[in-house]
Design a protein around this nucleic acid. Structure first.
Length: 587
RNA sequence: GCCCCAGUAGCUCAGGGGAUAGAGCACCGGCCUCCGGAGCCGGGAGCGCAGGUUCGAAUCCUGCCUGGGGCACCA
């Protein structure tokens, strides 16, 4: 159990014994570390409720604490804050038991089946800077929920079923009419080799899209191709499958580099078989009705004071669209995956879309009561001008180029600082890769998920201050210290009561992980974990300066300090893993 | 026009109805006979405006100003 919930139990018991709800015993890290380590604010609302004096209530609660042995100090301050400070022995005892096996105090919750929907790139288009946030944040959210014991499935939810693929099919048909995919008499036996490479697709797609705008005849053929594709015309399906496969192969390379991994590579197309039965049922059950030739679902209720437009279910030309697919995907996740919770890490600008889809899902029973549907939107990466990031010529920066840029900058910095110079070139390159990615990821994750931030490569790759490289440096230094200790046959032992402030602060910091993870999970906001990683390393650095471990003459204290380093490294490793940041052995 | 989001230090950003609002960068000043100085210690400076709710508001509510985004047959 976490330290803070242990304390909340003790104080909650005391509240209860005085006739109050035990929830008033909630404990927080003190806002005034000069006065106490922890605080409880419950006496003030409790007194309010009972019509009593808050300081009297606080005193009564303190007097009612059954076992005061963990506390060095218990006091009242201000209007009725209960201040708590632990004995050093108690704190050391708690830290002594912290390890991987007990998840560093992180409570394991009743597992829920959760789907995290993140990534969402389109087939046939190269990943670009706009995909970096959902990828990094989604991966972290997935890992954070897993750390709490949930059963989490990460699904990339590819954009693979819309107009773009009709346009591409039409374009390819025009250019290479001799390909077997366009022979209507043929129904199988298509080549296993893709007729187009990912580079071809990336070149063809913008051309086809532009052509569809300018050439009505082409646009009509593209629309017809979409309908044929969705109805299962074998040649089109085969060609589409090639496009999908080569795209996945290309994006996997980039995602792997980012340490982003999906359990499912589902997409819009995955639920194609559900579309017709679902829309038919919704119409028959009276949920969907005709409006301006299209089929829509009313999602506004009597309680709404704001206008919310109906959700478009089927277009007037009979085709489905992304709302239909997203609704069917909810159905699929409930029925096939047993999902109880679906979290969408998708651009915040999609919020109206999700609002409509979620309302429709609840209203129609596609999402059973109690299902959590949550659009936890991400913000954008902006350029120095505060607008969404563009290359110098106004184009979109590809994700691959972005990663290359950051890694190259990291490599240059290593050189400038004459670091890792004696390592073999391959290791040096691997280190630059990790430093660059840590810089990129930490630069992203330290911001709140939903806020936009300015991408500043110089700042992110800087080796000073609150950056990814600083965290790696901390971890590597701990590793190096432990290696040195092992070389001198110095062994770790039981954690003993801290003597110095820096030692005590590090212990208190180590004890905070559980509530950090819970808060991050609750808000789907990895920046809380990112902030904690920095604080942990910073507290370690202070401890490291103040307590010279290898020179310490008292063997018990030395063993305790070494143990503290081991615990810190283990916890930091966990935290960096939650952020998706890889640590090199040395650097 | 309606709706959503944001406005916090010179810059980039955190911040959970609680006490004296925090970091990093930049700027100024210290610290290696010592485990990795990518470090540590110290310094100044801030919640868009106006009301309201509350014992207590950066946080909740209302209005205004500024910026960004979104408003069915693209995704």
């Amino acid at each position: 159990m976490s330290l803070i919930t242990t304390l909340a139990d003790i104080v909650g018991d005391a509240f209860e014994s005085q006739g109050f709800e035990r929830a008033f015993g909630e404990i927080a890290v003190s806002a005034r570390p000069d006065l106490a380590q922890f605080q409880c604010n419950g006496a003030m609302p409790a007194a309010k409720q009972a019509g009593k004096n808050p300081r009297d209530v606080a005193q009564a609660v303190i007097d009612a604490i059954a076992d005061t042995s963990p506390f060095a100090e218990l006091g009242i301050a201000g209007p009725g804050f209960i201040n708590l400070t632990l004995t050093d022995e108690y704190l050391a005892g708690y830290i002594d038991e912290l390890d991987d096996a007990c998840h560093f105090g992180v409570p394991q919750q009743a597992p829920k089946r959760v789907v995290v929907d993140y990534g969402g790139p389109n087939v046939a288009k190269e990943l670009h800077v706009g995909h970096v946030r959902p990828a990094i944040i989604g991966e972290s959210v997935k890992r954070i929920l897993r750390a709490l014991g949930h059963d989490v499935i990460g699904d990339i939810h590819l954009g693979d079923w819309g107009m773009p693929y009709g346009q591409l099919i039409a374009e390819i048909a025009d250019r290479y009419p001799e390909l077997p995919y366009f022979d209507e008499a043929k129904v199988d036996g298509y080549p296993s080799e893709a007729p187009v490479s990912i580079e071809d697709l990336q070149e063809l797609y913008p051309l086809a899209a532009a052509r569809a705008k300018a050439d009505e005849d082409f646009a009509a053929r593209a629309r017809a191709a979409v309908v044929d594709l969705q109805e299962g015309r074998p040649g089109y399906r085969a060609l589409w499958q090639h496009m999908r496969d080569v795209s996945i192969e290309a994006m996997t390379k980039v995602y792997d580099r980012l340490n982003v991994h999906f359990d499912l590579w589902h997409g819009e197309s995955t639920v194609n078989h559900r579309l017709a039965p679902m829309t038919r049922r919704l119409f028959e059950d009276g949920f969907a009705y005709e409006s301006e030739g299209a089929l829509v679902i009313e999602v506004m209720t009597d309680e709404d004071t704001k206008e919310i437009p109906p959700m478009l279910l089927v277009k007037s030309d009979g085709a489905t669209l992304y709302t239909t697919w997203d609704l069917a995907t909810i159905e699929d996740r409930v029925e096939e995956l047993g999902a109880e919770e679906m979290i969408y890490i998708v651009d915040v600008r999609q919020s109206l879309h999700f609002e409509q889809v979620f309302r429709a899902a609840y209203k129609t029973g596609i999402a059973p009561e109690g299902t959590v549907l949550d659009h936890s939107g991400n913000g954008t990466v902006n350029g120095p001008d505060g607008k969404p990031f563009r290359t110098r010529d106004g184009g979109l920066l590809t994700l691959r180029d972005l990663v290359d840029m950051v890694v190259a900058r990291a490599a240059k910095r290593l050189e400038e600082n004459e670091l890792a110079t004696e390592f073999p070139p391959a290791e040096k390159a691997a280190i630059a890769e990790r430093v660059g990615l840590a810089a990129l990821k930490y630069g992203d994750l330290q911001n709140h998920r939903s806020s936009n931030y300015i991408f500043d490569i110089e700042r992110f790759t800087s080796f000073d201050g609150k950056t990814g490289p600083y965290l790696l440096y901390g971890a590597v230094r701990m590793n190096s210290l432990l290696r040195e200790a092992a070389g001198r046959s110095v062994e770790s032992g039981r954690v003993v009561a801290p003597e110095r402030e820096q030692e005590r602060n590090l212990m208190l910091q180590l004890a905070r992980l559980p509530e950090v993870i819970e808060r991050a999970a609750q808000h789907r906001a990895p920046n809380h974990v990112a902030e904690y990683a920095y604080e942990l390393v910073a507290d370690f650095s202070r401890f490291y300066e103040a307590c010279h471990i290898l020179r310490e003459s008292d063997p018990a204290r030395q063993a305790s300090w070494l143990r503290l380093v081991e615990t810190t490294l283990a916890e930091l490793s966990l935290v960096l893993e939650l952020l998706g940041i890889d640590v090199p052995e040395r650097m």
